[in-house]
Simulated assay, not measured.
Amino acid sequence: MEGTSVQMLLALSSLLCCTTNQIGVTVSPSRSQFFEGESVILNCEDDSSAGWTLRRNTTEETRTQCGPEWGSEGGLSCEISYLFTEDSGVYWCESRGGGASSMVVNISVSGGSVILQSPVLPVMEGHDLTLSCQSKTPPSNPSAAFYKDGSLIRTEPTGHMTLQHVSRSDEGLYKCHIRDHGESPSSWISVSERPSTTVAPTTTEAPPPASAPLHLVLRVCLHLVVISPFIISTLLLVSLCPQRASGSDPSVSMVMTQHSHAEQGLAEDYDDIITSGTTEHQF
């Protein structure tokens, strides 16, 4: 009987999920299973001026509104102060004109002593999913066995189980069992697709400015090439014909004097080039 009811509620949920999701539904406390006699508040999260109301489908009712037959309506919220097992079903927000609906949430009310605490909204791919098995009266041994689609997943000594980095294959019907206390109802857990991320185009940065203009470097190299023969010839003359304090050859002195004047002129040109280049670089 329980399996048939769950399948029917899931079928209703799949029919309603195709409507436009304009607003969200929040459940407080945030879980999908409750003990009989507990209370719950459902809210329509809406920032617009449009009117919204809570509706539900259960095994006893079809598309009924909060207020006239169940719950206490107050603005965009609906409170059920005392839950019965007949309140199990799918709940959603709908515009008063009937033109749009939100996503649906599944709520199960257990008349037994064990419930499964699970997220009321879908879990995003890649996130962790934590399930807790709770007993109405504190058990002497909190160890709980967790099942998916009727098959045992594992037994946790603490009564809590975490599935890391869930994927779409983790969707299914989950329930738990505590020895000597009983089994929880089954709850369908959905896994939503991770939103795609758009990679921003990379910008090409301009290369850093050169430390000195290229033409200045070329001019310096050219003058070094020109001045090199004079330097070499001067060194040769000095090594072959060393000057003395007296009696030096006038022709040699004249040649060396000419080379010295040439070198001095080139050195002055070189200094002018460096000075102009430095000034140019600063501006």
Rank of each mutant, 00 (worst) to 15 (best):
Thr279Pro: 00
Thr19Lys: 11
Phe283Lys: 13
Ala50Cys: 08
Gly67Asp: 03
Ser192Val: 07
Met256Gly: 13
Val120Gln: 03
Val255His: 10
His223Gly: 08
Glu79Asp: 09
Phe283Asn: 11
Pro229Thr: 06
Thr130Arg: 14
Gln65Met: 04
Ile273Phe: 04
Met103Tyr: 15
Ala144Asn: 03
Ala100Gln: 12
Met256Pro: 01
Thr204Pro: 00
Ile23Lys: 12
Asn141Ser: 13
Leu131Met: 10
Glu38His: 07
Phe84Glu: 12
His177Phe: 09
Cys133Phe: 07
Leu42Asn: 04
Thr275Tyr: 13
Val109Thr: 01
Ser88Val: 02
Phe35Pro: 07
His165Glu: 11
Met8Ala: 13
Ala11Thr: 12
Pro119Lys: 00
Ser32Thr: 08
Cys93Gly: 06
Gly51Pro: 03
Val199Ala: 10
Trp188Glu: 05
Pro122Ile: 08
Gln164Cys: 07
Ser118Asp: 00
Pro157Ala: 05
Cys241Asn: 12
Ser113Gly: 10
Ser143Pro: 03
Gly89Thr: 00
Ser77Val: 02
Arg194Cys: 05
Val114Pro: 03
Met103Cys: 12
Gly247Met: 12
Leu237Lys: 03
Asn106Lys: 01
Leu131His: 04
Leu214Ala: 09
Asp149Arg: 10
Ser13Leu: 10
Gly67Met: 04
Leu236Ile: 15
Glu73Gln: 14
Thr64Ala: 06
Pro29Tyr: 01
Arg63Leu: 05
Leu235Ile: 13
Gln258Arg: 11
Gly75Lys: 08
Gly24Asn: 14
Arg194Gln: 13
Glu60Ser: 13
Phe84Val: 00
Ile231Lys: 10
Thr257Val: 11
Leu76Lys: 15
Pro201Arg: 03
Gly126Leu: 08
Leu266Asp: 01
Pro68Ser: 05
Arg154Leu: 12
Thr85Val: 11
Phe35Thr: 06
Ser101Gly: 09
Leu83Arg: 06
Glu183Gly: 00
Ser95Tyr: 07
Gln117Trp: 07
Ser102Trp: 01
Val120Asp: 08
Ser95Arg: 15
Val114Phe: 11
Ala210Arg: 06
Ser14Tyr: 09
Pro209Trp: 01
Trp92Gly: 09
Glu73Arg: 15
His259Arg: 09
Gly182Ala: 04
Val199Glu: 08
Met254Arg: 15
Tyr174Gly: 02
Leu16Cys: 04
Ser13Phe: 08
Ala100Gly: 08
Ser13Arg: 10
Gln282Ser: 14
Ile231Asn: 03
Met161Gln: 03
Leu266His: 09
Arg194Pro: 00
Pro201Phe: 03
Ala210Phe: 00
Pro139Phe: 14
Gln243Tyr: 11
Ser72Pro: 02
Asp269Cys: 10
Cys133Arg: 05
Gly277Ile: 04
Pro242Trp: 05
Pro68Trp: 03
Leu266Met: 13
His223Met: 14
Ser132Val: 11
Pro142Gly: 14
Asp47Gly: 10
Thr62Ile: 07
Phe230Tyr: 13
Gln117Cys: 05
Ser77Thr: 08
Ser246Asp: 09
Ser246Asn: 11
Cys66Tyr: 09
Tyr147Asn: 01
Val226Cys: 06
Asn141His: 10
Tyr91Leu: 05
Leu131Asn: 02
Ser186Gln: 08
Met161Tyr: 12
Ile41Asn: 13
Ile273Val: 04
Thr278Tyr: 14
Gln243Thr: 15
Leu76Thr: 14
Gly3Met: 12
Ser151Phe: 08
Thr4Ala: 14
Pro242Phe: 03
Ala144Cys: 15
